[in-house]
Design a protein around this nucleic acid. Structure first.
Length: 707
DNA sequence: CGCACTAGACTTTTT
DNA sequence: GTCTAGTGCG
């Protein structure tokens, strides 16, 4: 099979320029993943390089898995153990192997998520005289670990941060825990302190590929640059137009930094878009060209034309949602699937009013995001039990489940255990042997140890999922969930799902059950599956951020109002922040394949009160010839006068009695022209255009005028 | 320890 | 308006 078949010239160049540093700026929908996977296949197949000498990193598990799958298909080989992974799992793999060279650290470490990190900080704060929000402190710690510039203006917060930070790190070290940032940070530290270890990997990875390069932060850049020192075959793909994660430390400057660090870096542009119609691309190009400081590229379409993008300015958010629902219904009737549609917004809270009406209109939908499967309490508990089976010295997991389900093992018993473990320098689990006491809690504690040891002794005699049943039955966890309440049933359902994950790992991993569990538990910590597959044929609701990398036949960009998008949490005068918002807009626009709708509303309930927000700056700055204005009369007025639109009312209506009668023609600021059909005191019923229907209004309302 | 009440938030979040 | 985290009481 010819790997290069069907590629355009720039794509071919990106695939075959294998030697030396290469930077590919790949516009949205330009076949980036295809180039990446074909290039890896090419390196293996054409250059005859061993797959294990290639390293490819991405940001999400999904992207990594997709790459493996595609390479596997192209080369008809098993790619399971190739070094194609996220930054974080790459680091875990390195640390697993070589952490012994880093003083104070040992293998078998556990990876904690943000929630657990915040909990640790909460405990540290509690034992001090300081005050502060754990999440906020953790945010600053993370910023510091990622070498981000930041200032803490609040004196109290700063003091707490300075107190907590070292204590937090001590806690992690003592309990053999790594937070996400540490994985990368400690890998770099390992390499810096042990040049021979670094050299091993430098020699190993003859070809290095980095996906979504515009989203790399300083640490990730440093890591990859380090590894590429020996062979210089560093290939990065990205799109500066789609850099939308600077708040997480992503440094768009890395693009220029690489070109300075490796002066011979070859730049290749992929500008041919295979996704969207010409009309959609014209609008996207129009938006993004307002950002200065960019690598100039213009997406050219595949010469597919379609409908003009539509801008719909609704009178109320209800009307906005109904406009979208009508469109979905119409196109589904014409043969589209629900999964062809995406409703995209800037902030999660926007989804609510869409959900209500989608339910009422029986349109299946799916929200992308939400709570991760692995951050559910019952799953974390199961993981802690499993860890305790293979790492009995894991005090962190011990504390989590020793009293879960409740066994009357309270703070008093734990602090006694703490004392014993400190005194004898043993784990809490071991300290149980030296604990003397009486009462229910005491006996339960002794029993707890027996239960864990009994299951642990059976470890290699059973199948992995059976371990869960043994835990559930012997620890009383199943009995705890046996109330037949919905919440309990859901938890049991989740545990069942977790069992099937264990079942799959049975075949995936190699070695003894202990070894399999060991690998699995570390892998799990880096997964954040957000039960995606449940409802396949459904409308997708998502933030712009989460929609990155996806495409839909029809895209609705909703709540396009100043304050929501661009968000009023950014400084409109700050060019850097405004440019990032504009890139978010660009990401949204370029998700659409065939149809694009931009919508907003004159009136919206937000945070418990009714607010009137002006149309998004991004709509105002769009070239009006590039989209169709659905609701011309009103929307144009606003667009041309982005400031406050003066009510076009001539009569002073404050105290004038209702002089309208059925049959009178009126104009409403939001609903356009209409006919009065009934009156009732100061209220009038008016029939507007079909999309608005019949409304009951106050006759004296300033938005109404007689025509 | 668990429930009930209240105060406060309410941008994005690949790992 | 609605959800969550934190406090306080039984």
């Amino acid at each position: 099979m010819d790997l290069l078949e069907g590629l355009n010239e720039s794509q071919k160049e990106a695939v075959t320029t294998t030697e030396g540093p290469v930077m590919v700026m790949a516009g949205a929908g330009s076949g980036k993943t295809r180039v990446l996977t074909t290039r890896i296949s090419y390196i293996i197949d054409e250059l005859g390089i061993n797959p294990y000498n290639v390293l490819a990193v991405t940001f999400t598990n999904k992207a990594a898995n997709e790459m493996k799958e595609r390479i596997g298909k192209m080369l008809d080989m098993d790619t399971k153990w190739m070094w194609v992974s996220t930054f974080h799992s790459f680091c875990v793999r390195v640390l697993r192997e070589d952490i012994k060279y880093l003083e104070g650290y040992k293998s078998g470490f556990q990876i904690i998520d943000d929630d657990e990190g915040a909990k640790i900080i909460k405990d540290i704060i509690k034992e001090s005289n300081y005050e502060g929000k754990p999440k906020e402190i953790l945010k600053y710690i993370s910023k510091d670990k990622n070498k981000m510039d930041f200032k803490i203006h609040d004196f109290e917060v700063k003091m707490t941060y300075e107190y907590v930070y070292p204590k937090y790190n001590e806690f992690l070290l003592k309990n053999n825990l790594f937070d996400f940032d540490d994985l990368i940070l400690k890998t770099i530290e390992l390499f810096k302190k042990n040049p021979n270890v670094l050299e091993k990997y430098q020699n190993k990875f003859q070809y290095i590929l980095v996906d979504e390069f515009q989203d790399t932060n300083t640490l990730q850049y440093d890591l990859m640059f380090m590894l590429a020192q020996r062979h210089h075959n560093l290939f990065v793909v990205g799109d500066d137009f789609q850099s939308i994660y600077s708040f997480r430390g992503a440094k768009i400057e890395n693009i220029n930094r690489l070109r300075k660090d490796f002066l011979e870096t070859k730049l290749i542009l992929l500008e041919k878009n295979y996704r969207s119609t010409t009309e959609i691309l014209n609008l996207a190009n129009d938006v993004i060209k307002k950002n200065p400081n960019q690598i100039k590229k213009t997406l050219r379409s595949n010469d597919v034309t379609g409908d003009m993008p539509t801008y719909y300015h609704a009178a109320t958010s209800y009307d906005e949602v109904m406009f979208i629902i009508e469109k979905i219904k119409k196109y589904v009737e014409l043969g589209d699937n629900y999964s062809d549609f995406a409703i995209l917004y800037r902030a999660n809270y926007i989804s609510r009013e869409f959900e209500d009406l989608l339910v009422k209109n029986k349109i299946p939908y799916q929200i992308f995001g939400g709570i991760s499967f692995y951050s559910r309490k019952e799953i974390k508990d199961m993981i802690a039990y499993l860890r305790l089976l293979i790492y009995q010295e894991d005090n962190y997991s011990f504390r989590r489940v020793v009293n879960e389900p409740k066994r009357k093992i309270g703070a008093a018993i734990i602090s006694k255990l703490d004392a014993i473990s400190d005194e004898r320098n043993i784990s809490l689990f071991e300290a149980i042997d030296y604990y003397n006491g009486s009462g229910i809690g005491y006996h339960n504690l002794k029993d707890f140890k027996v239960i864990i040891n009994t299951i642990s002794a059976q470890l290699d005699n059973v199948k992995l999922p059976d371990l869960i049943d043994m835990i559930l039955d012997n620890t009383g966890y199943r009995a705890m969930l046996d109330t037949s309440e919905d919440e309990d049933l859901e938890r049991l359902e989740n545990i069942k799902e977790f069992k099937s994950i264990l079942s799959e790992s049975e075949d995936f991993y190699e070695g003894t059950n202990k070894e399999k569990l060991d690998y699995l538990l570390q892998d799990l910590a880096l997964r954040s599956d957000k039960n995606e597959t449940e409802n396949k044929n459904s409308v997708r609701l998502s933030t712009f951020h989460q929609a990155k990398g996806l495409e839909f036949k029809t895209v609705f960009m909703v709540a396009m109002e100043n304050g929501i998008f661009p968000s009023d949490n950014i400084d409109f005068m700050n060019n850097f922040e405004m440019e990032e918002e504009r890139r978010i807009c660009y990401v949204g626009l370029t998700r659409a394949k065939r149809r694009l709708f931009l919508t907003n509303s004159a009136v919206r309930m937000r945070f418990g009160s009714t607010q009137c927000l002006a149309p998004s700056l991004f709509i105002q700055e769009m070239n009006h010839n590039l989209y169709e204005n659905y609701n011309k009369g009103f929307a144009n007025t606003i667009i041309n006068k982005p400031t406050v639109s003066k009510p076009q009312v001539t009569t002073t209506t404050t105290s004038t009695p209702n002089t309208f009668k059925a049959g009178d023609k009126i104009n409403h600021k939001a609903f356009g022209d209409g006919v009065v059909v009934a009156t009732d005191g100061d209220n009038i019923k008016v029939a507007f255009k079909p999309e608005f229907g019949i409304k009951t209004l106050r006759a004296s309302h300033p938005a109404i005028r007689r025509i």
